[in-house]
């Protein structure tokens, strides 16, 4: 059993490693090999050909693509992503604190949305087909169908404009107490958690219903096993894999939301930095941010895959 399991896990890790390589190459190719290079952008349209060429040479842009890729990879491996084209400050310094802020936001969102989704998903499963279930699933479908900025706009309109319970902008420097922390984080977290919870509870409901349609659940009902026991002892052991997968997938799709939410609420996180850098064509910053996001995304999905594999192998087969 363990050998088979180990091989499967190794297979997943191998696939992820391939994806990582693909992602690194893709990030470099897209940002460095597409038309319109940095020198053009920096000097603007009025620049002479000579000035552009000189700058290209100074920046090493006249070297062949594979050499530039090598230099870039080398510096990334040494945790030295270079300097911002815009401000000249080291990218590492720009990102440092903002990465922490983004992780804080993501952590707070996960802390809210995971329990909420589990509760909602299970509640819907247990009352499948009831009015409650139909209402909740329709509402959740509505929430996943709209872009995140729309949720943010509605949140601002309701909480900041109409009821004035929380500020529309997140001033993270003003946090000195728990109360202030809640006030500042309330809006971004409620928006992000709204989007993530909707996605996650739908997926959890789908895989729980899948498990609940199994004949052995009907058998447990006919044995007179209490509903709570059915969920905890019969359904969950068989649903761990899919549920963990659902959670990880939803958490990783949270990334798109983070980008928007940080921009809307002016939250000083990494996604906001990335958007600003994209607008300013600040390629080194964009590359570094993209790499960090992609690695985080890959890490989550791989983790979920491994957990799913391990849990289905436990009692499922030899």
């Amino acid at each position: 059993m363990n050998r088979g399991l180990g091989r499967l896990v190794l297979g997943r890790l191998g696939a992820s490693a391939f994806s990582l390589v693909f992602v690194i190459v893709a990030i470099f190719t897209i940002t460095a090999a597409l038309p319109g290079d940095v020198a053009d952008t920096l000097l603007g349209q009025g620049a002479t050909a000579g000035a552009t060429a000189a700058l290209r040479h100074a920046m090493g842009l006249d070297q062949p693509a594979w050499l530039r890729f090598w230099h870039w990879l080398d510096s990334m491996l040494h945790a030295d992503p270079g300097r911002s084209l815009l401000t000249g400050r080291p990218v590492a310094e720009l990102i440092g604190l903002r990465l922490y802020n983004s992780l804080l936001l993501a952590g707070a969102t996960a802390a809210v949305s995971v329990p909420a989704s589990l509760a909602l998903g299970l509640a819907c499963t247990m009352r499948q087909g009831s009015r409650f279930d139909r209402f909740v699933t329709t509402a959740l479908l509505g929430v996943v169908s709209v872009p995140v900025f729309l949720l943010a706009t509605v949140a601002v309109f309701v909480f900041a404009v109409q009821f004035r319970v929380a500020p529309a902008l997140a001033d993270i420097n003003a946090v000195h107490s728990v109360w202030q922390f809640i006030r500042v984080f309330f809006m971004p977290v409620i928006t992000l958690a709204g989007a993530t919870t909707a996605q996650m509870s739908r997926m959890i409901r789908a895989c729980m219903i899948d498990v609940f349609s199994a004949p052995w659940i009907e058998m447990a009902v006919l044995k007179g096993v209490p509903p709570v026991r059915i969920v905890l002892f019969h359904a969950l052991p068989n649903a761990i894999g899919p549920v963990v997968n659902a959670i990880a997938l939803s958490l990783s799709s949270l990334l798109g939301g983070v980008v928007v939410v940080e921009t809307v609420f002016n939250y000083p996180g990494m996604a906001g930095l990335m958007v600003d850098s994209v607008a300013a064509r600040d390629v080194p910053v964009v590359q570094c941010c993209a790499l960090i996001f992609c690695v985080a995304y890959l890490f989550l999905t791989t983790l979920a895959d491994v957990v799913a594999v391990a849990s289905t192998r436990r009692g499922g087969s030899h």
Binding site: F22, A26, G36, S253, G256, R281, V286, C294
Partner: peptide
């Protein structure tokens, strides 16, 4: 699979950063 492992918004941002 490789393409799928780059989040969609991120991919779009990358291209826009390079190509406008």
């Amino acid at each position: 699979d490789g393409l799928l492992s780059i989040p969609s918004l991120l991919f779009a941002l990358l291209v826009i950063a390079a190509a406008g």
